[in-house]
Computed example of a mutant assay.
Amino acid sequence: MSSTSHHDDKIAKMTFSSVYPHYLTKVERKGRTREELHEVITWLTGFDEEGIQQQIDAKSSFEQFFAEAELNPNASQITGSICGYKVQEIENPLTQKVRYLDKIVDELAKGRKMEKILRQG
């Protein structure tokens, strides 16, 4: 599925630090922890605890965030719909990466087992 260039530009310019508190609230409201959130972010991006905090402190755009990330080779196994888009069909690579992150945070909040979220089983 293709999205508009305006939509892709908007996502690219959005900062990770502006979205992170929403991720945290979403998972904590459903009984998951900050540590579990960081585990899925680390799995997808390669950022450790310090790296995640540096991205927040630097107010990195998603474009910068994913330019510095080392995307997990199994990220392409993330499928399904998020925000009305099937992540596996998104044509813009950056938008797809952001939606991968949205999808695994959503899976965490919905109580999915960690090994399933991390595509281990």
Results as ranks from 00 to 15, higher is better:
residue 1 M to Y: 05
residue 1 M to H: 10
residue 1 M to T: 05
residue 3 S to F: 06
residue 4 T to F: 04
residue 4 T to N: 09
residue 4 T to E: 12
residue 5 S to D: 11
residue 5 S to G: 02
residue 8 D to C: 09
residue 9 D to M: 10
residue 9 D to V: 05
residue 9 D to T: 10
residue 11 I to R: 06
residue 11 I to D: 02
residue 12 A to T: 01
residue 14 M to L: 11
residue 14 M to T: 15
residue 15 T to I: 01
residue 15 T to G: 04
residue 15 T to W: 00
residue 18 S to D: 15
residue 20 Y to M: 02
residue 20 Y to T: 03
residue 21 P to H: 06
residue 22 H to Q: 12
residue 23 Y to W: 12
residue 23 Y to N: 11
residue 25 T to Y: 12
residue 26 K to N: 14
residue 26 K to V: 01
residue 28 E to S: 03
residue 29 R to L: 06
residue 30 K to G: 00
residue 30 K to Y: 02
residue 32 R to M: 03
residue 32 R to L: 00
residue 33 T to H: 00
residue 33 T to I: 00
residue 34 R to A: 07
residue 34 R to P: 00
residue 35 E to C: 00
residue 35 E to I: 02
residue 35 E to W: 01
residue 36 E to T: 03
residue 36 E to F: 02
residue 37 L to P: 00
residue 37 L to H: 00
residue 38 H to G: 01
residue 38 H to P: 00
residue 40 V to K: 04
residue 40 V to Q: 07
residue 41 I to G: 04
residue 41 I to Y: 01
residue 41 I to P: 05
residue 43 W to D: 08
residue 44 L to F: 07
residue 44 L to G: 10
residue 46 G to S: 04
residue 48 D to S: 08
residue 48 D to Y: 09
residue 48 D to L: 08
residue 49 E to H: 07
residue 49 E to R: 08
residue 50 E to L: 13
residue 50 E to R: 12
residue 51 G to M: 05
residue 53 Q to T: 07
residue 53 Q to E: 14
residue 55 Q to C: 10
residue 58 A to N: 13
residue 59 K to G: 13
residue 60 S to A: 15
residue 63 E to D: 12
residue 63 E to V: 02
residue 63 E to K: 10
residue 63 E to G: 01
residue 64 Q to S: 15
residue 64 Q to F: 08
residue 66 F to Q: 02
residue 68 E to K: 15
residue 69 A to C: 04
residue 70 E to C: 09
residue 70 E to A: 14
residue 74 N to R: 09
residue 74 N to L: 12
residue 75 A to H: 05
residue 75 A to F: 05
residue 76 S to F: 14
residue 76 S to D: 15
residue 79 T to W: 01
residue 82 I to D: 09
residue 82 I to T: 13
residue 83 C to P: 00
residue 83 C to K: 12
residue 83 C to S: 13
residue 84 G to N: 11
residue 85 Y to Q: 14
residue 85 Y to S: 12
residue 85 Y to R: 14
residue 86 K to N: 14
residue 86 K to T: 10
residue 87 V to W: 06
residue 88 Q to R: 10
residue 88 Q to V: 07
residue 89 E to F: 09
residue 89 E to N: 12
residue 90 I to L: 15
residue 91 E to S: 15
residue 93 P to Q: 14
residue 96 Q to S: 11
residue 99 R to L: 15
residue 100 Y to G: 07
residue 103 K to M: 13
residue 104 I to A: 11
residue 104 I to W: 10
residue 105 V to W: 02
residue 105 V to T: 11
residue 106 D to I: 04
residue 106 D to T: 13
residue 107 E to L: 11
residue 108 L to F: 06
residue 108 L to G: 06
residue 108 L to E: 09
residue 110 K to G: 04
residue 111 G to L: 07
residue 111 G to F: 05
residue 111 G to W: 08
residue 113 K to A: 15
residue 113 K to C: 03
residue 115 E to W: 07
residue 116 K to F: 02
residue 116 K to I: 07
residue 116 K to W: 04
residue 117 I to D: 09
residue 117 I to N: 06
residue 119 R to G: 02
residue 121 G to T: 14
